[in-house]
Design a protein around this nucleic acid. Structure first.
Length: 271
DNA sequence: AGAACCACCTGGCAGC
DNA sequence: TGCTGCCAGGTGGTTC
């Protein structure tokens, strides 16, 4: 489900429900996520107050008094507010109970997600190596051009590499490259400064529009209040193999890069 | 150092 | 219907 826009949508949706609330209890029904939920986590969280919600890449970070709760939704995770009266389903692995009776429920059928305690986001091993935030001021054409210099791999693989730029998953990588008119197979090091500027702008625009639309809606994406996103209605290439390009009418192609599906318009997107 | 590949899981869907 | 095979939003780790 979740790339940067989905996590940001969840963050914005959950903030009013969580900020300022005290944690009454953490209930873990299934510890086997990507990494096991730590034994002592519930004890650590009890009576902590949630000071705010932040995001780094695709990680949701809950700022507490003595540390942070790091939440990653993997491929199929979702977080939503519900009530204790609502019985948990088969894949509802974790509940965070609040002092006002509210309940934050984590569902993750594939269990690729993670729930971790973090002392210091700047130094946590999973966050320390992360690259630039694509919606920050630091991310522009020059920045992207520098990140691309000297690399042999395909440009699509590079923009999905979180050590360089965070938050861009398969959907938005495909969409951004289409809007920039760049063939996803282009050798990264051959991206000109001009085209780097165009791609950086396309990435920013694509992510921003997706957030404004409330995130994507592949299968069952829902935001913190259970509302579906609507961005998928505006996919230009993703999952449109064989259909006509919305711009030129050519058939959208599907290829495999780094074991992931790539969709592109062979006429609009150039090497 | 960098690039290619695998692994971790379950569910949904197409095709037989 | 029910089976099989394939595909899916992520990313750390292993291998070459």
């Amino acid at each position: 489900m979740p790339e940067l826009p989905e996590i940001e949508t969840v963050r914005l949706g959950l903030s009013p429900h969580l900020a300022g609330r005290r944690i009454a209890a953490l209930r873990v029904r299934e510890t086997r996520l990507r990494w096991p939920v730590a034994d002592g986590l519930a004890a650590r969280l009890r009576d902590e107050t949630i000071r705010g919600l932040q995001r780094r890449g695709k990680y949701l970070l809950l700022r507490l008094d003595r540390g942070w709760l790091m939440w990653h939704l993997g491929m199929s995770g979702s977080l939503r507010m519900t009530s204790p009266a609502q019985a948990p389903g088969r894949h509802d692995h974790v509940d965070l109970e609040l002092d006002d009776g509210g309940l934050l429920r984590y569902r993750d059928p594939r269990r690729f997600g993670a729930l971790l305690w973090c002392e210091d986001p700047e130094r946590h091993p999973l966050l320390a190596h992360l690259g630039v935030e694509p919606l920050s001021d630091a991310f522009d054409g020059d920045c992207l051009h520098t990140l691309c210099r000297g690399r042999a791999t395909a440009i699509k693989t590079t923009i999905m590499d979180a050590r360089r730029v965070v938050g861009i998953g398969n959907i938005y990588a495909n969409e951004s490259l289409f809007h920039a008119g760049i063939d996803p197979r282009l050798a990264t090091g051959r991206l000109s400064r001009t085209r780097a500027a165009r791609l950086a702008q396309a990435i920013r625009d694509t992510l921003t529009r997706a957030i404004a639309a409330g995130g994507s809606s592949l299968r069952d994406f829902v935001d913190g209040e259970g509302r579906p996103g609507y961005f998928q209605q505006s996919y230009a290439v993703y999952d449109r193999a064989g259909l006509a390009c919305t711009h030129c009418g050519a058939a959208i192609r599907r290829i495999i890069q780094a074991n992931r599906s790539t969709f592109f318009c062979p006429r609009c997107q150039r090497r």
